[in-house]
């Protein structure tokens, strides 16, 4: 059998491997905790509480697809949440306006990132590392390094108080964002352009794609989605603090890379990332419920990522990927 065909078959099986492992994890925890782990309430809580993490991971998928890193998304989450907190709680600005201002701030960050990356040709890793630090400083200045509670109940209502089938609305926002991103990446010319630019900027340029515009759009979209993650995060907590959003950056990268082993193996993709976020959080939830010390969850996260990527590559005949 030709090598390429074997690899294709491996990829065909591999695309659902993560889902299979997820099912095994659920079964193992359900047996270990009969009547406790496998119930609707547990999964409903898990679904809602992981929505900000899912949105952040999706935000990373866009620039990763077009070949750029955006390390500022975690800081944008914090910026959006803190703008809402400062304006709504401290200055009594109506919540609707604070959301618009937060979105404008997020778009500005994306535009600034794009300007330095595309116009000055500075690597995205460097620019977004710098902008993350810059935003972090601005957020501390804005908030006087304080945590702000008492964000409008309306935002809390439309994220975690409102429920459909017992699951917080926040989950459906993440689900809708996943479906939209999947559609755009798979079925629109814009999505295809992102992929081509990510695979080879030179080839894309020779084929008539405006590479700079495509990369800029991906960075703007990434910041917008990170802002949405920040809004949902603020609604989930009902508060904002100047530091915690950045802590989600590395788990989001882990989910994006793990997601790239699933559904469309070898490519960053929306559904794979969505599955990865919930696979990892299922593992962590189960371990926590068993009362296992929390350092084990770090081992689980790292081990799962490494194992999944390795197995995926093995199944694909160790082909080169565009995962960086």
């Amino acid at each position: 059998m030709p090598a390429a065909t074997r690899a294709d078959e491996g990829a065909g099986l591999g695309r659902f491997a993560l889902l299979g492992v997820w099912a095994v994890v659920v079964v193992v925890f359900s047996i270990a905790m009969p009547g406790v782990f496998f119930n609707w309430n547990n999964f409903a809580v898990l679904a809602g509480s992981q929505a900000p993490a899912a949105l952040l991971a999706l935000a990373l998928v866009i620039p990763l697809t077009s070949g750029d890193y955006d390390l500022s998304v975690g800081a944008v989450v914090t910026l959006a949440a803190m703008i809402i907190g400062v304006l709504n709680v401290w200055h009594s600005v109506p919540i609707g306006w604070t959301l618009l201002i937060a979105l404008a701030a997020g778009i500005t960050v994306g535009a600034v990132n794009a300007f330095f990356i595309v116009y000055f040709r500075i690597p995205s890793l460097v620019v977004t590392l710098a902008s993350a630090s810059l935003i972090s400083g601005i957020v501390q200045w804005l908030s006087n390094s304080s945590t702000i509670s008492g964000i409008s109940p309306w935002l809390v209502d439309v994220t975690v108080n409102g429920r459909l089938f017992g699951i917080d609305f926040a989950f459906y926002y993440a689900l809708a964002a996943t479906a939209l991103l999947w559609y755009v990446l798979e079925y629109t010319p814009a999505g295809r352009r992102l992929l081509f630019v990510g695979r080879s900027r030179e080839v894309a340029r020779l084929n008539g794609i405006n590479v700079d515009r495509t990369r800029s759009a991906s960075l703007l979209a990434s910041s917008c989605l990170a802002t949405l993650a920040g809004v949902v995060y603020a609604g989930t907590l009902g508060s904002a603090d100047p530091f915690s959003g950045t802590n989600f950056l590395l788990p989001a990268f882990a989910a994006a890379f793990l997601g790239a082993t699933s559904i469309i193996p070898g490519r960053f993709n929306a559904w794979g990332t969505f599955v990865a976020v919930y696979f990892l959080s299922t593992g962590i939830t189960g371990l926590s419920m068993l009362g296992i010390p929390l350092w084990v969850t770090n081992v689980f996260n790292g081990g799962a990522l490494l194992a999944a990527v390795t197995l995926s590559q093995f199944a694909r005949g160790r082909q080169e990927t565009d995962l960086g």
Binding site: G245, F248, L290
Partner: peptide
Amino acid sequence: EWAVKIQPSVQSALLA
């Protein structure tokens, strides 16, 4: 790790 781990861990403890 407060921001990343407290909420899911307390949720799990309450559910369990």
